[in-house]
């Protein structure tokens, strides 16, 4: 494995009244692509949010290290600036904020990405072309009135603009038609090639993985990490489903 970029160690977390994750461990090396799979309600998205620092969830035990720093108690904005990016399954609408203002502000927050406004605009234009986006979207309000596919493209646009060290893609492929899926897949591929970042992809759909080389596959069931294996594990899941892992989950241990 490459040097570890993300290390989640024995993390238990949940909301105030409901534990969701139980002693979950996961490690992602620099430049690696990992896939996180599991049946609905397994806690995959929760894990993504806990890594991102969503205050909805409290970490009751365990630790999260990112880039050799303990970020377990860091706020989400600090984690973001450190290089973690979480792509939303359902991106939030932000009325009153044009996309341009938003993109410019989040880029300027990162010293390594600071550039003149003119260069910034050119850069956004390049990425937009890559993602088959029109030019008028910049003056529209962030995610307001955009279709599901357009919202996912805007997530990809941010991914390519911010160049995070780790991108957690939470079912980025859900609800996309074939064309939009193709564009999003191209975006992810571009991220891997241009930014050499790490990926943790939460998905049910193997089509989004077709252009990628998967290094590790993780399987979660009922808030526990029950299996980990090479990329070929995805084919096994594709053929046989999660039943074998669900049984392991009932036994309460990792396979």
């Amino acid at each position: 494995m490459h040097s570890q970029l993300l290390r989640v160690s024995d993390v238990s977390a949940g909301t105030e009244d409901k534990p969701i994750l139980h002693d979950v461990s996961l490690a992602v090396g620099a430049g690696e692509t990992h896939v996180l799979m599991g049946p609905n309600g397994a806690g995959k998205s929760t894990l993504g949010r806990v890594v991102m620092g969503d205050p909805t969830y409290q970490v009751t035990s365990g630790s999260i290290f990112f880039d050799d720093a303990d970020v377990t108690n860091e706020a989400a904005d600090k984690r973001s600036l450190a290089g973690i990016f979480l792509s939303y399954q359902a991106p939030v609408e932000v009325p009153g904020v044009p996309l341009y203002s938003y993109l410019r502000t989040i880029t300027q927050k990162r010293p390594e990405l600071k550039m003149t406004a003119r260069k910034f605009r050119a850069r956004v234009g390049e990425i937009a072309d890559q993602l088959d986006m029109g030019s008028s979207f910049l003056t529209r309000e962030l995610n307001v009135g955009f279709s599901g596919g357009e919202k996912k493209k805007i997530e990809m646009l941010q991914l390519l603009l911010l160049r995070p060290k780790l991108a957690i893609l939470d079912e980025t492929d859900s609800g996309l038609d074939v064309d939009a899926l193709s564009v999003v897949s191209k975006g992810i591929e571009a991220y891997r090639q241009d930014c050499d970042g790490s990926l943790l992809i939460i998905t049910h759909n193997t089509r989004i993985l077709e252009r990628l080389t998967v290094d590790r596959t993780h399987v979660m069931v009922q808030g526990r990490m029950v299996a980990e294996g090479p990329g070929s594990l995805i084919d096994d899941i594709d053929a046989h489903g999660f039943e074998q892992f669900e049984r392991a989950g009932e036994d309460g241990g990792a396979a």
């Binding site: 706020a75 973001s80 939303y88 044009p98 938003y102 502000t105 989040i106």
Partner: peptide, 23 residues
């Protein structure tokens, strides 16, 4: 939460709304 996930603390998120008016 969304804006924090992209690196903006709460006061910066609020300032973004003001900048957006001028934009």
């Amino acid at each position: 939460r969304y804006l924090a996930d992209r690196g903006l603390a709460e006061h910066e998120a609020e300032a973004l709304y003001v900048r957006a008016l001028f934009d």
